[in-house]
Design a protein around this nucleic acid. Structure first.
Lengths: 153, 153
DNA sequence: TCATCATACATGCAATTGCATCTACCTAGC
DNA sequence: GCTAGGTAGATGCAATTGCATGTATGATGA
């Protein structure tokens, strides 16, 4: 049976993870690619591109982001105005909205995504070995899986 | 000699780390403690509380945060107006500003910090073992150490 | 069936943010 | 010493954000 983690251990691990995220993000934000589209907006396109059916509910999308519901609502409005996403009311629930990428939006996502991945790799590859990155992913995947069981609200 | 990581491995590890950070943050933001002070403002107090000398340069503080320099400049202004931080011009460089917590600011930081750590632990402890959290910290610490050698700009 | 309550998203509005730019100070090279 | 170029923060202003709340639809129970 695995040992129960100490308070110091969990909080220090969290702080280290968090600070690493900040350090990487700061470097990413400086890339010229994010002049076209703010990081947060790209994040929306990216999340939409990962959805298997193509269409995502607004509230579901909101859970994957750190912005408030009204902010997302208006951001989607702007992205729609730019022709990057489409909206429709959900069939199963007339209150709900479903969103998907337009061709133009999908294209832009891929374009930025390629550069994004390339820079990320240049930045991260020297830091850990293949096995260590796999280990890191395994640990964080399990954390998210565990969190999912107890939803945010 | 450790194997050189693949592009897929680094980008997937990053995505997993990033998503985990979002999932944890979303849960933290909902806590009633962050009514008093926005997360970003707490983050400033936290960073100041961790500084050994007590005083931190504005630009140095900025590097630990994901907000722009003008935003931080004004946020510090507001925190000063609330009596949570103090400012003074740096001795070594008359252009620079140094910031530190006031007693009131330090008190508030500790108060929120305690609750913060407690909730964090309740949330994270069931997810991984003691050893795994240590491993996670070790990996992310090394990532940051490696990033530090090649500064953000 | 029909009140009652919950949920999904939109909107008014004040606060915060970022971009571009400005000012003050520092550093180099002459 | 002085000028050119760089760095640290501050500020004007438009855009974005969050909070509180509104509107419409869905779910529940007497």
């Amino acid at each position: 049976m695995a040992e129960q983690p100490q308070v110091r251990t969990t909080s220090q691990a969290w702080e280290s993870l968090f600070r690493t995220q900040v350090a990487v993000m700061r470097r990413m934000q400086q890339l010229p690619e994010f002049r076209k589209l703010a990081m947060r907006e790209y994040d929306v396109l990216f999340n939409l591109s990962n959805c298997p059916t193509g269409w995502t509910r607004l509230n579901e999308l909101n859970e994957a982001l750190l912005i408030s519901q009204p902010s997302l609502s208006r951001m989607v409005e702007r992205l729609e105005a730019k022709g990057l996403v489409q909206r429709r009311t959900a069939e199963s629930d007339q209150r709900g909205i479903e969103i998907s990428l337009t061709d133009k939006g999908a294209e832009l996502q891929r374009e930025i995504g390629r550069v994004h991945v390339r820079h990320l790799h240049e930045m991260l590859a020297p830091l850990l070995s293949e096995a260590e990155f796999q280990q890191l992913q395994e640990l964080t995947d399990r954390m998210r899986a565990g969190l999912k069981e107890r939803p945010a609200r």
